[in-house]
Every structure is written in C-alpha cells, then in structure tokens.
Design a protein around this nucleic acid. Structure first.
Lengths: 167, 167
DNA sequence: ACCCACATGTAATGGGTTACATGATTTA
DNA sequence: TAAATCATGTAACCCATTACATGTGGGT
C-alpha cells in the first residue's frame, strides 16, 4: 500500500501504456530511451516485476506461442490506482530531484574563471546537440514535452553563463 | 582513481568550500539545504568520509578542544584533483539526471484531462511558492543560480501546461 | 553454421535509507 | 536541571549495478 520506488512506478506506467509487456520489453525501453538515470538492467527489472506481482499491482500471463517461456504483465485495478497515486503526487512532483548540472553549478566557484567558461561552453554545445537529436518517439505529446525540456534547459544554461560571466 | 559517487563528490566540494569540516557538519548541510535528493543521514556521510580518507582524497585532523571527539577533514591535493575532475565532467554534466516532474509528465496521458489540469495547476503553485521562499544562503552567486533554476522551471511548467492544454 | 534479438534469471557488490545507541557541550 | 545541539558511529535493510549463465527463434 505504501511507497513505490520511482523505478517501480515507471514500470507500472510502461505497462499501463503498452497494455501487456514482458520484463525484457520493459528493460529494453529503459536501457535505450527512458531516462538514462536507470540502466534498465535485468537485475533491476526482473526483481521489480516480481515485487509488483507479489503486491498484486500487476498480473502475469504466460501465452504459449511455441517452445519458449515468456511472461507478460498487465496492470491490476490496484496497480492502476497505485500508479495514479504516484503520478499525481504533487508534493514529490514539485521537488528538484537530482540534476547533474545543477549539482555542479553550485560548486563552480571552486574553479578558475577560465575553466568555468570552457566548461559552460562545452556543456551548452552538448545540450544543444542533444536538443537537435532525433526524438526517439513518434508520440507528438512526448516529443513536445521532450522539446520543452531541452529548450528550457538551454535557456537556463545561457542565463547561468551570463550570471557567472559577470563576476 | 576511478569513479566518485555524486554524494562523495558533493562531500569533497563541501570540504573544499569550507576548508575544514566534520562529518556532522556535512550531514547537517546535506539534510537541511543541499539537494533534498540525499537525506544527509549519518549512515551515508560517515562511511563516505571514511572511504575518502582511505582513498587519500581527504585527510583527517583531530583538534583536541577539550574532552570530546571531533574529526575535521581537509582536501588533499589528489582530492582537489578528483573533485575538479568530477566538477568539470562535461559528459555527465550534460545528462538529465532524475527529475520527479519530468518522469511524471511523460506519463500524464494516462490520466483524464481533468486530473491533468488539476495536477499541473497544483504543481505550478507549489513550485512558484518554492521560488518565492527564502534562499537559505547569503552567497549572491548561489542565490542567482537557485533563482535561475526556479524561474526556468516555472517557465517550463507553463509551456507544458499550454502543450497539454491543447490536446 | 553462425549471429543477433528475444527472453529469463541469479550472484556478488555497492551504496544509499531508517533507526538505534552513546555521550559531551551549550543554552534556556 | 532539562532540553537542544554537537558529534560519532553501527545494524538491518533495500534496491540498483555489473557480470554471468542459459536457452529459443529467426535471418543470412
């Protein structure tokens, strides 16, 4: 009834979006696109789906399409409820999480002006490149959200550069 | 020589900024301001400083200011080098990390229009409130960075609302 | 025949979390 | 003198990571 880890919640959401998926399918999406924060390793996903089954949040079905083992998961009613509880959690959604750039920026006064400038320029270039990269999804909503993330991030970096440039 | 965890790096940076600190002092700052991503628990900080000492990245000194035990840490030369290596790591700095809001937004199509709108309005309000809150530091650079984070975040949320509003 | 994608798992490890335990010093 | 703060640590637990092990099915 209590806490889902963020990975568990993401798994629930993935199952909700797809309807029916295997652990392998979940792991694959996590490792190639999802968040780059999770590796999408088997050692995380298989235990996670097992936990979710034990808690009754998802149900397992084993369609026998010839020979090999394959287990697909679907959301249960409680699973949907839990997923929505996590998704609409305003308190947690309003936090900052972990941002590898932010955690560096707040310490950037520890290096020289020159290093700062070079670093920020390089990061800006890299983020701009990532923003131009192909989106990896054809869902227009997701694409728009992804685009807004990258745009806002670029704008933020520019702001920070001007702040730190004027020391 | 290889990887620092982000927490270890943050500890190094804190020591670099302060010059000399106790584990307790580090834990305190982490738990009240730092990142809200780390709890700043003793169970994380004391083992971390121990590891950093073992790797020669910080050195321990025990000033005897009467009676009670107290261990302060300072950066070693290698510690400064490791910290700078982490700080100026463009590759890692350019990633997205974990954002509790982003990880929800990409799944927001799973709830009704009404729930979406209510959720986004509530989050916007809460983030705006956090942006107005007192900064917790008197360092003008840090304040400016924090301000830029919150401003960019608010702008982003507004963009997302207009994207998701026009479905 | 060989390789790649699909598919499922386990084992060792690492590094966080909460909760607990202890004691000195300062402040009300 | 009671409470808060400073200060250090440990123990049990959880969960994600990497690396390994195993096997099927389809394409070249």
């Amino acid at each position: 009834m209590i806490g889902l880890t963020d990975l568990e919640a993401a798994v629930l959401a993935k199952i909700a979006r797809e309807g029916s998926v295997t652990s392998y399918g979940i792991a694959k999406e996590f490792s190639e696109s999802m968040s780059e924060f999770w590796s999408g390793s088997a050692g995380a996903i298989y235990p996670a789906t097992r936990r979710l089954v034990q808690r009754g949040l998802i149900v397992a079905t084993s369609p026998d399409n010839g020979g090999h083992t394959r287990t697909e998961y679907q959301l249960s009613r409680e699973g949907r409820r839990a997923m929505k509880g996590w998704l609409l959690d305003v308190e947690r959604a309003s936090g900052l999480g972990f941002d590898p750039l932010r955690s560096r920026l707040v310490n950037l006064e520890l290096v020289t002006e020159n290093e700062r400038q070079k670093f920020l320029a390089a990061v800006e270039e890299r983020v701009a490149a990532a923003a131009r990269a192909e989106p990896g999804t054809d869902n227009p909503q997701l694409r728009a959200i992804h685009e807004s993330v990258m745009k806002s991030r670029l704008g933020w970096i520019k702001t920070v550069r001007s702040i730190l440039g004027s020391i």
